[in-house]
Simulated assay, not measured.
Amino acid sequence: MSDQPSVYLAGPEVFFPEDLRIHIDGSKKAVLAEFGFEGLSPSDNALDLERAANPAQVIYDANQTLMDRATALIANLTPFRGPSADAGTIYELGYMLARGKPSVGFSVCNVPYNKRVESEAEVDANGAAIEPFGLCDNLMLDCGLARHGGTLVQGERAYPATGFAPEDFFDEELFRRAVRHLRSQMG
């Protein structure tokens, strides 16, 4: 175990093809190391899921152990499988904020959440209201991070009609900005 502060890397990358996931994890960990942080990825868990009675619970428990060990969190909140961030990543962000751990989010997308849901509409196709605030994602993410001293850093990519391809989820300079915010938040 390192004496460096450690950063849990939340995001949907665990669902990406292995080669790409390994590349992104490695790139993030290299940047974190430059700033004096140790990166902790859910993919670091060596789990024997073949023999597990409940593989989902084993994954959850291992990820929670990593989050408990981590000093801080950086969450990839790029829209995943729809107009909002990955649900598991959102949970992890809330968990870390509730534990009082410094947290920063980033999204490669520059299109506000409400525009991703229904371009100019105030309600969606089912008649449900759409948050009109022009934030990066749901107000609970943007405002939650801000209330706890963090931020949600946005990139420059437009939101594609088909959603982001796995290879478009990482932007090294954007991630560096997120790490700089985290470093300043931690003093």
Rank of each mutant, 00 (worst) to 15 (best):
D171S: 05
R157L: 11
F175R: 02
A121W: 15
P83G: 04
T151R: 08
E120F: 15
V108M: 10
E50Y: 06
S43R: 10
D44A: 05
R183H: 14
F15E: 03
E18W: 03
Y159N: 05
E120R: 08
F80I: 06
A70Q: 14
D142S: 14
P132M: 02
T162L: 15
E167M: 11
D25L: 05
N63F: 09
A33D: 04
E172T: 02
E131I: 15
D142M: 13
V7I: 09
F170D: 01
F170G: 02
D137E: 10
P79C: 07
A146C: 08
A52S: 10
P55D: 02
D68A: 13
V14K: 14
L152P: 00
Y95T: 06
P17I: 01
A128Y: 12
A75I: 06
Q4W: 10
E118N: 07
D137F: 02
N63H: 15
D168C: 05
N54H: 11
A128W: 14
A129R: 12
M186K: 04
Y91C: 12
L93D: 13
A128I: 14
R99S: 06
G163E: 09
N138E: 08
V153Y: 04
K28F: 03
Q57V: 01
F133E: 13
L9E: 02
L9D: 00
C109E: 07
S27I: 05
F37E: 04
G94D: 08
R99C: 12
E18D: 09
L77F: 06
A121Y: 13
Y91V: 15
S41E: 01
P42M: 10
F16Q: 01
E156H: 14
E122S: 09
L77M: 06
R177S: 03
E172L: 07
L20M: 11
